[in-house]
């Protein structure tokens, strides 16, 4: 396990972040027997998984295995797709998120999301970050909003780069900066869970390293779920890993264990590069 926390020992940030003990954590999201259908296609089959608070969980698996679909179920982003149907139980802090009483808007404020391609709005950097707090009414006045924006940008590890040009359009930043802006934007609404759908796939290695570093920092405050294609990335940033294959959750466990000693032969095949 220690191998996976190598980064913690880097002197770049404060120590307390890494001191979380996996065993002591609560379950944040619990999924039981989740089925997802796209029209007639059965995309997710019988997936049950408990995602922990203050932990980075990685979803890995070959393309089309359903990991992104499952991720999008967790904040009901699939609602925006007409033909998509979700069955089974998904609970956030013990509350069914597919309950009739749930407004997806309220849910998504608690379960934020960062997308594959950086998608800053065609607005200023400031407005990009302030958008979420504004719609959720998190700030009473301009000063408070300024504070929230600054905090979010700092947490997104991009404050120093943009603090002098908050009025510049968010689309003018580089790819890595854009993605960190999007993370800052997601963080600004004070979510409890942060879902990331292949957040580094459109970035170059340097930007990827910066974002990965950021993800590790975010673990202190949130439950982070990350879908990734890169097994190295999963190994670098996550504490827990779930391996999906053909819509099934094949194996879920400690990242170190999945990568060093997988139980299921399919997991082993994937990790050693035979399927994927």
């Amino acid at each position: 396990m220690d191998a996976n926390f190598a980064k913690e020992n880097e002197p770049m940030y404060d120590a307390p972040l890494g001191k979380n003990d996996v065993d002591a954590k609560d379950t944040k999201i619990a999924a039981k027997d989740v089925q997802v259908y796209y029209g007639d296609t059965h995309a997710i089959k019988d997936v049950s998984v408990d995602l922990l608070d203050k932990t980075v969980t990685a979803f890995i698996g070959p393309s089309g295995c359903g990991k992104s679909t499952f991720l999008r179920c967790l904040n009901r982003m699939n609602d925006t797709i007409d033909i998509c149907r979700v069955e089974g139980l998904i609970e956030l802090d013990g509350e069914d998120i597919y309950d009739k009483r749930v407004d997806p808007v309220q849910l998504r404020a608690k379960v934020g999301m960062v997308f594959q391609k950086p998608n800053p709005f065609p607005k200023s950097i400031y407005d990009n970050v302030a958008y979420g707090p504004k719609i959720h009414g998190l700030a009473k006045n301009k000063a408070e909003l300024d504070e929230i924006v600054e905090k979010a940008l700092r947490r997104g590890a991009i404050w120093d780069e943009v603090k002098d040009r908050l009025d510049a359009p968010g689309t003018g930043l580089s790819g890595g900066q854009q993605q960190r802006l999007c993370i800052a934007r997601a963080v600004a609404t004070e979510p409890e869970v942060l879902l990331m759908d292949e957040p580094c796939s459109a970035l170059d290695p340097i930007a990827t390293a910066q974002v990965e570093e950021l993800i590790d920092e975010l673990r202190a405050s949130y439950s982070v779920v990350i879908v990734t294609h890169s097994m190295q990335q999963a190994a670098r940033v996550s504490q827990k890993t779930a391996f999906f294959h053909l819509g099934n959750l094949v194996e879920y466990g400690e990242t170190s264990q999945i990568f060093t000693n997988p139980v299921d032969p399919r997991t082993e095949s994937y990790i050693t590069g035979r399927i994927g």
């Binding site: 770049m12 940030y13 404060d14 307390p16 972040l17 956030l92 509350e95 069914d96 998120i97 309950d99 009483r101 749930v102 407004d103 808007v105 309220q106 849910l107 608690k110 959720h136 009414g137 905090k151 940008l153 700092r154 947490r155 997104g156 590890a157 991009i158 404050w159 120093d160 004070e190 409890e192 570093e213 920092e217 975010l218 202190a220 405050s221 949130y222």
Partner: peptide, 26 residues
């Protein structure tokens, strides 16, 4: 990275149930 300096502690978050619509959402 100085950015992380205030990122260390999560802001206190009011606990709310997603099964209840708050006034603002309404």
């Amino acid at each position: 990275m100085t950015d992380a300096s205030i990122g260390g502690a999560a802001a206190p978050r009011k606990k709310s149930s997603i099964h209840e619509l708050d006034a603002r959402t309404r």
